[in-house]
Amino acid sequence: MIIHAYPKFYLRHAQAALGDAFDYAINTCGITGCDFIQMFVVSSVSKRMENGEPAYLVGKSGIEIALEVVAETKGQELQTESTERMDRSAEYWIGWAVAYYRWYSGRRYHEIFQALSFEALQKMYYTLHEADVTKFADIAEARLKECFSDTNLKRIRTTYGCTQAELAQRSGVGLRSIQMYEQRNKDINQASAETMYRLSKTLGCTMEDLIEK
């Protein structure tokens, strides 16, 4: 069962807002795609969109999002006025499609952009921009699974900096269970709520972060 990042009625606006943010930052303000992605993923804006805050999913325009990202990460105020566009640019599609995949998969933006560079997304635009966005989601999911072959539990544990034994001791979850979850010999998605809570609390992440897509 896929757990979406936030309710679907926010999705359409979130896609348009992130699409407009990419288009405005790159095509109007002259920021490179790679640079804007780096700014976006480290900003609190991306975290607030990930957390499903309505103020950022439906309460801000794409231009407002881009302005806030640049102001927060670079301390700069963009003064460039937006221009009316009749067609949707490749940059708009990138933001629009990635926002859909974020909602669909529940994956974090920094993970998505780690597996899919701006250049890779540009290449995908030419073959996928007229296709249903679910086609992009399928390809993106395959790319992320290639990039992150470890289970979420193992990846988060190693990033946190503890061994399996230390995690078992601190969380109260059996060492053998942790080993089996990380080796995919046991499905962590079927773990009890208490087990997921203990692991996530110990590792400083959410229970959803441990779920395998």
Rank of each mutant, 00 (worst) to 15 (best):
E208C: 13
Y24V: 05
A165Q: 11
Y181E: 13
G33C: 09
Q169W: 01
R88Q: 10
G62S: 07
A55Y: 02
I26Q: 00
E91S: 11
H4I: 11
S200P: 02
E208W: 13
D209M: 12
D35R: 09
R170W: 07
G172E: 11
E194G: 07
D138L: 15
H110T: 08
M124W: 10
Q169T: 09
E72G: 01
I139R: 04
I156A: 09
L144P: 01
S200V: 04
F36V: 07
L18R: 14
A99G: 08
H13R: 14
E146T: 11
V58K: 02
T151A: 14
N189Y: 05
S171A: 13
A165E: 14
K213V: 13
H110N: 12
H4W: 06
A99L: 10
A191H: 02
L167R: 12
P54W: 04
H129V: 09
T202C: 15
W96Y: 15
K47I: 05
R102D: 03
C205P: 02
E81I: 03
S46N: 06
F36L: 10
D87C: 09
A142M: 13
C29R: 00
A120L: 12
A55N: 06
F118G: 01
V42W: 01
D87L: 13
L128Q: 11
M49N: 03
V133D: 06
E208Q: 14
T151S: 15
K74C: 09
W103P: 02
K213Y: 13
D87F: 13
I31W: 08
E166L: 10
K74H: 01
Y125F: 13
Q122S: 08
Q179L: 06
G19R: 03
K47V: 06
R176S: 15
E68S: 12
E119C: 10
A191V: 08
Y100I: 12
A97M: 04
M86Y: 07
T134K: 09
C147D: 05
F9M: 11
R176D: 14
I2G: 09
E119T: 13
E53D: 14
G52K: 05
V98F: 01
E50W: 10
M1R: 06
S44C: 03
T158R: 04
L167Y: 11
F118Q: 00
K145H: 12
D23V: 02
E141W: 07
F40R: 00
F36G: 07
R184D: 15
K8Q: 12
K145T: 11
L57G: 01
A115D: 02
T32G: 12
T32P: 00
A14R: 10
Y125W: 07
S117P: 01
K154D: 09
